[in-house]
Design a protein around this nucleic acid. Structure first.
Length: 498
RNA sequence: GCCGGUAUCGUCUAGGGGUUAGGACGGUUGGUUCUCAGCCAUCAAACCGGGGUUCGAAUCCCCGUACCGGUACCA
């Protein structure tokens, strides 16, 4: 079994395409097949090496590795279409000499006029066949005379149905009546998509073509080409497209659409792939959050749904949270650094000593949708200011009402040992309760205000040890970190002076 | 216009001639003697419409409607 993903390097990898790539990968991985990566860069104006590199990077990031293709090599190369031009040319000559293809000299204006006329008459707007019966000599003469020509495929005379059994859609039938002679090679000698795919898929011995539904009506044209060459076509599977919340094709106005954007926002690759697999497919047994390897063993292309699916950012966030909680602290710390650096909270020194970050990151990661939100979640550690907090009306009011608790807290922390675990924190809170008389919400809320400067957020018995640990590293690059005791004192002083 | 495809809670889906139509995300309400989150529990929420076949249709068939794709010297 040989499968391929064949993106055009004309921009970022779209999540819809990423999903198609994933389905190919899943099938290959689950069946012990080969996953091949080919680059379809025949659109010279829009293709770029930068996009190509970006796409490879995104694919690798998602874990969709390929063992054959671009940068991996293999026996069926080259894997970039612009490097296969000689092959397309050779097969075009073959088609030309057998009469299965012919030169066409029609101008763009003429073609457009024909199209409009056909449309107006309610006929399928296919190529009218003006150059179909030009003799080879005539064509030769005009080409020698300097005229530009495209090479068109001659769709066989007489109406018949082209039928193929699509693995996700079942039997699909098209009449040749509505198929105009497709352009194989453009006037600049570059092959058109419908031609290049056939040559490549055949030569690369692709057995299963899983692609977007937007290609389904190209399939009969391609089948005709396989037939003309006497080649056995691959098995096709056309998967539906991914839509935005308004049920129109997912695009920029819906927000992030490319893999790169999701990565930049701090989604984990395993979360994105897991979620993408869930659009239009179900692993069954009421389970959804599964590692990619498990997805691969369960995946059957026949089980992919027929209808287009809406991309649900909320559910993606949920899946991501799941993986965030499961991720190793060291990995999270490493991944969070760019975001913290952007917020200005991490120095070079910090990069060298990740111990503190590693102890603190899981606290934030457990209650955040994406890595991008970690700095905000951790601002109580890096950006504490008693004065600023008290400028908030509701916080100030609450603090004043609880002044007794806060004073008691400040005294308690001044003398107590560092609170490095939950038990120590609980014991401390108990003592504050005894001296202030407050309990429950009236006790813990003021403590939070004083220590984090925020009215809500992290669980206190986790946050306090984090603050204490931060204090030990305060001189090595973390700004504004103070011990819990100093914070409480600072807050109490600020409160008194108001 | 023409050709093709699709249709189960708001969303992703399971199921499929007789079911209390199941799950997940999101939402509701309550619990977890501090908060967001989490977790537990709870509730609300669906078979596009119309015909036909049948004892019985959400399921099979037809028609309609809506949506998506194609209709390129773009892929």
């Amino acid at each position: 079994m040989r499968l391929r993903f064949a993106p055009s390097p004309t921009g970022q990898l779209h999540v819809g395409n990423a999903r198609t790539a994933l389905f190919n990968w899943l099938l290959a991985a689950g069946q012990g097949g080969t996953f091949i990566l080919r680059i379809e860069d025949t659109d010279l104006e829009r293709s770029s090496r930068e996009s190509e590199q970006a796409i490879l990077e995104d694919l690798r990031w998602m874990g969709l590795d390929w063992t054959e293709g671009i940068e991996a090599g293999g026996d069926h190369g080259p894997y970039r279409q612009t490097e296969r031009l000689h092959m397309y040319r050779a097969y075009a000559v073959e088609l030309l000499s057998s009469g299965a293809a012919y030169h066409c000299f029609c101008s763009a204006e003429q073609l457009e006029a024909d199209r409009q006329a056909a449309l107006a008459a309610g006929r399928p707007p296919k190529y009218a066949g003006r150059c179909r019966s030009l003799s080879r000599d005539e064509a030769r003469r005009r080409i020698d005379g300097g005229e530009k020509a495209v090479i068109r495929f001659r769709v066989p005379e007489g109406h018949r149905d082209i039928v193929f059994n699509d693995l996700v859609r079942g039997e699909v039938r098209f009449s040749t009546e509505v198929i105009g002679d497709p352009v194989l090679v453009r006037s600049d000698g570059i092959p058109a998509y419908n031609y290049a795919v056939v040559i490549d898929d055949a030569l690369m011995e692709i057995t299963h073509v899983i692609r977007g539904e937007d290609h389904i009506s190209n399939t009969p044209r391609q089948l005709l080409l396989y037939e003309a060459f006497g080649w056995r076509p691959p098995i096709f599977a056309h998967v539906s497209l991914v839509m935005g919340p308004d049920h129109s094709p997912l695009s920029k106005r819906h927000g992030a659409t490319s893999v790169a954007e999701f990565r930049a926002r701090g989604y984990l690759p395993e979360a994105l792939t897991n979620y993408l697999a869930l659009i239009g497919w179900s692993p069954g047994a009421d389970e959804e959050v599964l590692p990619i390897s498990e997805l691969a063993t369960r995946f059957r292309i026949e089980d992919v749904g027929h209808s287009a699916g809406v991309f649900d950012v909320e559910k993606l966030a949920w899946v991501n949270r799941h993986y965030l909680k499961a991720a190793a602290p060291a990995r999270l710390a490493q991944l969070a650094i760019p975001y913290l650096r952007q917020a200005g909270w991490v120095s070079e020194l910090m990069d060298r000593d990740l111990t503190y970050l590693e102890s603190v990151i899981p606290i934030a990661a457990a209650s955040v949708d994406r890595l991008e939100q970690i700095p905000a979640r951790l601002s109580f550690l890096f950006d504490y200011s008693a004065d600023r907090s008290l400028q908030n009306g509701s916080i100030a009011q609450e603090a004043h009402e609880s002044a007794a608790v806060i004073e008691s807290l400040a005294r308690e922390l001044e003398t107590s040992a560092p609170l490095l675990d939950r038990d120590a924190f609980r014991a401390m809170a108990k003592r504050v309760q005894q001296s202030s008389g407050a309990k429950g919400k009236a006790l813990f809320h003021p403590i939070r205000l004083a220590l984090t400067g925020e009215a809500e957020g992290i669980e206190l018995d986790i946050a306090v040890p984090a603050i204490e640990r931060g204090a030990q590293l305060s001189q090595s690059g973390i700004r504004r970190i103070v011990s819990a005791g100093k914070r409480a004192a600072e807050f109490a002083a600020a409160l008194r002076s108001r």
